[in-house]
Design a protein around this nucleic acid. Structure first.
Lengths: 226, 226
DNA sequence: AGCAAGCGTTCAGATAGCGTTCACGGGCTT
DNA sequence: AAGCCCGTGAACGCTATCTGAACGCTTGCT
């Protein structure tokens, strides 16, 4: 899951970036509205944490422009606790959630999880696909109750595929959502991770649609077409 | 839009019911966890406002049970401002948003709108032609509900024809849209792909207009032209 | 009816996308 | 400081898929 943070306060920005990185997100950080707007416009984020008081372009304007351009990723806005009117403006501009500064990092993480799973169309915190489960809150996976030990990137791949189970996920999409901005795309790391995942969760759960991408399925409930 | 309010405080409950009713929602009100759980389980709500401190069954438990039962309507939880851990527990139980008491009714309405807006934005981008469907996002095709396995190029051809169903699509146009650069025109690969597609989706769906191109139709609703 | 051009079908060789393995190196733990 | 774990990228082999050609059928025209 790839997240954009738009926050001008250097300390808070660094703190957030670190917290999200440690929780398995691929994070990009923009320090002003202009950069933030550009990144959100060009890169495929799964969610955005947007401060409203920003240099160059105001946060609400940034959000308005994204929505006007058809960007529909979930956006969580941050603002000072007493700026009540900003909040309403933010919601009207298309924000999905709001958090008042100062806040506990735990709460931001919880809200982010809620936004992400809802964006994927799931209501519950535990993603499930047959007897394969992923608990996004503990960053843990299990098959048939047996916990599976996954490395950080294996977990990212699996988590993303669980959020999009049943549909074909192109490899480029995986790359874009698992790594942040600067990454060398000419590599086969994704194949390697998928291979390792298959070893751990069973090889029949991740289908490869040749030329299209991968597809996560419940092997117990799938038929083989001609 | 039909909303369930689960709130034990009679004053607040009445106030919320009234506010939502006046804003055009159909509102049901439950005064304890048991009644709330029952209603949410049996009636089709578009959203729920759920207080966490409830008699009989706690709000978090109620939410957990709904989610475990597969209920996926958006849920906004209410709790006292200082009960911080409840909040996180609520999110991880499957809440979509949170509001601390006391709050402005305006804000509740704004958040409710945001929840409903996002819940509505889950329309699948599926092309359809008779009982032939192509879900462009999942890269999957099905006839009469039966999934069809297509190769990458077959999928591209079908997808393009679905976008232009009913009209004659010249072979050159298909070539241009399926291959990146200019492509050796002295080949019959398109015919080959069309042939294979016909085998998979039924031969009466792709007509050939001799000398002009192909035309995708719904065989169930077409008459024979001259 | 006969002919020619357009189209369908089949098939084998070529291709490229993918799986697997392995080794290197950086970062974190001990 | 040493060791381990993990991420990365290269090499290599496999096979599903693509492709082009051959051949036969259909259609429409003369």
């Amino acid at each position: 899951m790839r997240v954009l943070i738009v926050e001008d306060d250097p300390d808070l920005g660094r703190q957030l970036t670190e917290a999200l990185s440690q929780n398995g997100y691929a994070v990009d950080h923009a320090a002003d509205g202009e950069e933030g707007h550009f990144l959100g416009d060009t890169e495929p984020y799964d969610a955005v944490v947007l401060d409203l008081g920003l240099p160059k372009i105001d946060g609400v304007r940034v959000l308005e422009r994204w929505r006007a351009a058809g960007k529909d990723m979930p956006v969580l806005i941050l603002t000072a606790r007493d700026r009540w009117s900003e909040k309403v403006a933010g919601f009207d501009a298309g924000a999905d959630d709001y958090l008042a500064k100062p806040f506990y990092t735990e709460e931001l993480l919880a809200r982010l999880r809620a936004l992400l799973r809802r964006a994927a169309g799931h209501a519950s915190a535990a993603l499930q696909c047959g007897d394969l489960r992923v608990d996004t809150r503990a960053a843990r996976a299990s098959v048939d109750g047996e916990p599976i030990k996954l490395t950080a990137h294996e977990y990212r791949v699996l988590s993303y595929m669980m959020h999009h189970q049943g549909r074909v996920v192109p490899r480029t999409e995986l790359v874009e959502h698992i790594y942040d901005q600067d990454f060398d795309r000419d590599s086969n790391t994704i194949e390697v991770f998928v291979g390792r995942l298959r070893k751990k969760i069973g090889s029949d759960r991740i289908l490869t649609e040749r030329g299209l991408g991968y597809r996560l399925i419940d092997p117990a409930a799938e038929d083989a077409p001609s």
